[in-house]
Nucleic acid binder design. Structure first.
Lengths: 194, 194, 194, 194
DNA sequence: AATGAATGAGGGTTCATTCAT
DNA sequence: GATGAATGAACCCTCATTCAT
């Protein structure tokens, strides 16, 4: 059974979200699980492996969730709205993992000081860019804007909302979600009189 | 002369922006400056003092810059535009300090794991909220929206832009600035036919 | 095997007795044992833990020795004599540990400057006070005197003797022991013509 | 004026008595006096010089006090009593200095780990030994005992009493004094029927 | 799979001491 | 006499990693 591996990941996420990246240590995970440090290294030979597992686990589950819940059979504006809603819902339901993943991505560096998990490929922005392209070029939902830039701004808003979501009630989160949806709807849609 | 103190702050900012918070160490600053570790502790008895000096220095200079350059004698929508422009200009001209400050705020914790520099008062959002209030209640520039929430989203967009700005040419940054201004102009302004 | 732990304690005692509390360092213990500093911290996470182990080890062995060797089935005066003899014999046979323990108790402080190992309960004086009480109230061996005070003076004499014992020959120590026994016999016993 | 020098000594004594030898630092003295560390080093080029000044100051004042207050024109037993009384009175009136001096003597070592201020000459014991010699050989006040040993025990009792005296009321100290006097009177005097 | 022991590098901090002003 | 700046060594402690069992 690879049960231990999952327990390690879960505990590491919890500690990362609680204590922050700089304070995060293998030893703390081991202690919290009541096992020896060696166990962690058995499953994750290097600290980076564990961090990578957390990040990949989060993105994989996010992708699965998006695939399962996002509405695609409609206008670009509606798809965008669904993207934001689904995204924020997932984050709200996976708050600690989201926080942990963010802190890893922002902080993890190799020995030379270069970010390890920063997305240089722009893969995260791909779905958004596709939606924008469709809305601008095919169904005319959207006005003209720099797609890469808008994708970046939107993602940062979503990620920031993830932090807020941590301390909010369910009702507050619903309001938050609506406000963000509206904001980016207004910011992107074609002006009626154009 | 308090020259060394300023050199320490400058070097610490450079290293923080380059290597990230978790890798940042007093020793690295000392080595980079060609002085002994003791010197750093002479000027900043604890690591936290140095971090605090960086953060406060940045915010003070930001406030001065804003005070000197922001236009206030016009409509709320224009003031908002000026706020974003001035803000991003300052960040663009102080990129490393901005990145360093952000990484400190996100990562610095005390021994119990609680964030040290996170703004709990909401002071950073105050100017934006005032602009929003004016635009919503006095001159009618803005539509109805949650001011606190919009302030949070806008600030996150600005801070994210700071990261982008680091790797951009001047021309790209100008475009970036315009796009953000337009986005939040659309997102906030009262619909013409309302 | 917990062999290393015992070797650390033994070496720490030797160094403490030789170099004194203020000069005592974890690093010196590690070097003397030919191991890395980390090993010490593995077995004793904080310096205080090591100091505590030394003190407790000494007191435990002292209590065992006293329990095994002290004569109790006789007059209070004889019991007192036996107490002093047994005590000094144990100290003579554990000279370095005695010196080390004393230096820890006198010098170890917490961050606020308060002594850590100083006995505030007065437990060390309890056996002596019981002997004195018996001799004063039951079998009449002793004259009237302040029991707590006499116990304190006697203990200080014994502890001081421990220091002397370090540099003496066996013969000298035997004489020393006899002199102390006689001194406190005279100081405590009931005057014949009373 | 050498006023500063005296202020440094006084403050150092206070800190030593409060915080203990191991925690004692030049910097703390400077801070407490509101001067720079350099000042201390101007007056006492090495830390050891300051410690030496404290010890010598104490012993000199003690010698002066003893010379001024001790009764010498009587039997050895009476002189001994006077010695103890005068000694303890001085200590009671100079508690912090006594504690500071003791901690210096017990702890200060040179770089090789050898005690710096430990009295190897036995000078401290000289007055007592003279009293004992007189009482044993001239006026017959005292029984036979090892003079050096008795001097050592008596001094340790007096030094221990100094610690007690720190936390006592005046009345308690008077009782303490009487008890010690009586104890050593009984321990040393010739048995009436010998 | 898991443990316990050990390593070794590095980090923050303290502190006596030096020295130019 | 006094200050402030700087040094450099030592110290306690943390931690990722290795390895025999």
């Amino acid at each position: 059974m690879a049960k231990t591996k999952q327990r390690i990941i879960a505990e590491a996420i919890r500690i990362l979200a609680t204590s922050g990246y700089a304070q995060f240590s293998i030893g703390e995970v081991a202690t919290a699980l009541g096992v020896s440090k060696g166990v962690i290294h058995y499953h994750f030979p290097e600290k980076t492996s564990l961090l990578r597992a957390i990040v990949e686990d989060f993105y994989q589950r996010a992708a699965e969730y998006m695939g399962a819940h996002m509405r695609l059979d409609t206008s670009a504006a509606e798809v965008l709205r669904s993207y934001i809603e689904t995204n924020l819902t997932f984050v709200a339901e996976n708050r600690t993992a989201a926080v942990a993943t963010t802190s890893i991505i922002l902080n993890a560096r190799d020995r030379e000081g270069n970010p390890i998990f920063q997305d240089t490929s722009g893969d995260i922005y791909q779905p958004l860019i596709e939606i924008f392209t469709y809305g601008q070029q095919i169904d005319g939902s959207f006005r003209k804007f720099d797609r890469q830039l808008m994708a970046t701004i939107l993602r940062s808003a979503i990620d920031t909302a993830a932090q807020l979501v941590l301390h909010n009630s369910a009702a507050e989160n619903a309001a938050l979600l609506q406000e963000i949806v509206t904001t980016f709807d207004l910011a992107t849609r074609r002006n009626s009189d154009e």
